[in-house]
Structure formats: C-alpha cells, structure tokens
C-alpha cells in the first residue's frame, strides 16, 4: 500500500470527500472489471460496483491498515457481487453485448482481417468463463484476468493458499474444456 493511499485514507476518515475521490478513481476500473467478469452482465456489474464503492466509502473508517487497501476494496466488490447473485439468482444470464474495450492491439493492427476473429474469440472466452461455477470463476478471473498472486487471492477471498491453488488448477482445466466444447481447435486460433 502506497504512502499516498495511506494519507488519502486517513483524510477520508477525517471526512475529506475530495480525498476519497482521489483514492477511489484509481481502483474504479479494476473493481468494475472484477464485477463484470464475475457477474457477466454489464448493467448489473455497474450497479454492483457502485454499491460496493459506496460501501467502501461508508466503511472506510473501519479500515484497519492490516491488509492492503486494494485487497480490502476488491473483497467488498466480490462480496457485493456474491450477494447480488444470491439475491437475483441469475447467475446463468450472460451478457450478449460485448462492452469490453476494443483497443486494436498489435496483432490486430498487423492483421486487420483477424480483428473480427479475435472479437469472436473473446466472446467465446467470456461465455466459457461464465460457464464455470462461481468458486472457480472468481479465482481464475483474479489470477488470469487481474493478475493477482496466489497470496493476494488467498487474502481477498480469505481462503487458504492450497485452496487457491487447487481452484485455479481446476478452474483452468474446466475453462479449457468449455472452450474445446465450442471449438476443439480454438486454442490453435489464438496467437
């Protein structure tokens, strides 16, 4: 946790609204990415992210500086998402629209013909991810989408590192299976 974050958090606790804005603006996007990949629905993810970040604001005075702020923040986002799924029981509803950003990466710039294919591929991966159960989906998205370490995942989800490891392993295997179901040759399309 950076010194700056600690400073901003302390000012928030003292009731400085501007500091909270400065603090949260750095994490909004990641928080939303987690909610989106976990819930699979763009509008739900927006609602949940907003709700979670309001919770962060309201509870920031209870933040103890024992864990990192991001861990604490993402945990709130994930728990809010879980609550949302429980409440709405629409785990299986998958967003048809793709709102993910379409920055042309190097591959696409080199080969514009492949652009459409890549888009299609991305959608397939999204759908496959949503086919996983919640437990495995969350670890895979934290590991492979957000790039968290095992330790961080263990912290955020508050599960032992061994569980993290087994869930990642199982989740990836299941994801691969799902992708193969869509197209047995799919992994050869990548790259």
């Amino acid at each position: 946790m950076s010194e700056m974050d600690i400073f901003l958090i302390k000012k928030c606790v003292d009731g400085d609204f501007k500091s909270f804005e400065q603090l949260i603006v750095k994490y909004e996007k990641n928080a939303f990415a987690i909610a989106l990949r976990y819930l699979g629905n763009y509008d739900d993810a927006l609602d949940v992210t907003q709700e979670a970040l309001i919770k962060v604001y309201k509870n920031i005075k209870n933040f103890r500086f024992e864990s990192s702020f991001t861990t604490w923040l993402y945990r709130i986002v994930i728990n809010t998402s879980k609550d949302f799924l429980k409440k709405n029981n629409k785990e299986k509803i998958i967003s048809i629209e793709d709102h993910s950003i379409d920055l042309p990466d190097d591959r696409e710039r080199e080969n514009p013909v492949k652009n459409a294919e890549n888009k299609e591929l991305k959608l397939i991966v999204e759908e496959a991810l949503m086919a996983l159960n919640e437990e495995n989906r969350i670890v895979v998205l934290l590991k492979d989408i957000q790039g968290f370490t095992y330790d961080e995942i263990s912290d955020v989800l508050q599960i032992p590192i061994g569980t993290v490891r087994s869930r990642i392993s199982r989740g990836r295997a299941m994801l691969k299976n799902e992708l193969m179901k869509q197209n047995p040759d799919i992994l050869n399309l990548i790259g």
């Binding site: 909004e28 996007k29 939303f32 990415a33 989106l36 990949r37 709102h99 993910s100 950003i101 920055l103 990466d105 591929l121 991305k122 991966v125 999204e126 991810l129 895979v140 998205l141 492979d144 989408i145 957000q146 790039g147 990836r172 994801l175 691969k176 992708l179 992994l187 990548i190 790259g191």
Partner: peptide, 17 residues
C-alpha cells in the same frame, strides 16, 4: 495451450466504464 488460454483471458481485463 494453457499459455494461450491465459493470454486470451488477460485480454478480458480491458473493460470500458
């Protein structure tokens, strides 16, 4: 294969608010 899949997954981190 695993590497490719993870690469592809990492592309999902880019979202638009």
């Amino acid at each position: 294969e695993m590497k490719k899949m993870i690469d592809e997954l990492s592309r999902l981190s880019e979202v638009e608010l």
